[in-house]
């Protein structure tokens, strides 16, 4: 499987590029849309919620603190959400191709991850620009984002693969997962600080796998701290296990998958 990935590396790179080209080829703003979409989300939340929540953000005295906090969380969430969402439908989307042509199918999730990473990079760069405007400087702690991004990729790829394979046979999964993701988004402290959750209920957050990840993004981008590795490493371990299970299911199902597409 990994040898196939290496052999088809040019194809994967080419496909990621084609993906970008075709998405924006006939729009005036082109690649800007990849950034404008999450940023407009930031703007909406900032406008609506900043007055309610800004005061409760501890430890930062900038008046734009809430906007920065939002962007930090969204950077991590977007990557997770996008990879899971793409993997979920990737085999169905390319069903015709899979049925007609013989090529290593493992390249499909690789292409999806590749283009999600590029989007995330664009988003990060534009966020840095906005940070600078708001007077929030680049700091060395941001380098921690590189390993953190990898952890998110492994974790979301694992989940995405398992769901994507199952979705081929049980199409309900493709319908229910976006709802679950939406719920998970609101159960994760992204648009609100942890502190607004009453102390009594806060331990429930530990059941949310995205909490340590998003917290790490916020620690790095908002406070310039290095993240709390304990939680992140747990997610990494879980991600590795999920990815192995996902790849195993992908392999086992590949013969039947064509029949069901």
């Amino acid at each position: 499987m990994f040898r196939d990935l290496y052999k088809y590396r040019n194809f994967i790179i080419q496909s990621v590029r084609n993906d970008l080209i075709s998405r924006f080829s006939r729009s005036k703003l082109g690649g800007l849309w990849a950034i404008l979409n999450p940023l407009s989300q930031v703007l909406i939340y900032a406008l609506i919620l900043s007055n309610v929540l800004a005061a409760k953000l501890p430890g930062v005295d900038s008046q734009y603190a809430y906007a920065i906090y939002l962007m930090a969380g969204l950077l991590g969430w977007t990557l997770f959400n996008e990879i899971v969402g793409r993997c979920l439908n990737i085999f169905i989307e390319h069903g015709n191709l899979i049925k007609k042509m013989s090529f290593p199918r493992v390249t499909l999730p690789a292409i999806a991850v590749g283009s999600c990473l590029i989007n995330n990079l664009f988003l990060f760069i534009s966020m840095l620009g906005i940070f600078a405007l708001l007077g929030h400087q680049f700091n060395m702690a941001m380098l921690w984002l590189i390993p953190l991004t990898l952890v998110v990729v492994v974790f979301s790829l694992g989940i995405g693969l398992i769901l994507g394979v199952m979705n081929v046979f049980l199409r309900d999964i493709g319908q229910v997962i976006p709802i679950i993701l939406q719920m998970l988004f609101w159960f994760t402290p992204i648009v609100y600080p942890v502190t607004i959750i009453p102390e009594v209920y806060r331990h429930w957050l530990n059941l949310n796998p995205m909490y340590p990840i998003i917290d790490a993004y916020q620690q790095i981008l908002v406070y310039g701290n290095s993240p709390q590795w304990e939680g992140v490493l747990t997610i990494l371990a879980a991600g590795i296990i999920l990815s192995i299970v996902g790849l195993f299911m992908f392999r086992r199902s590949s013969a039947e998958m064509v029949d069901a597409l």
Partner: peptide, 18 residues
């Protein structure tokens, strides 16, 4: 891919063929 040129598609398809 309808949005790509013939050349880009040809490169893509040849890559797909390995």
């Amino acid at each position: 891919n309808p949005e790509l040129t013939g050349r880009q598609n040809a490169i893509h398809a040849l890559g797909l063929m390995g």
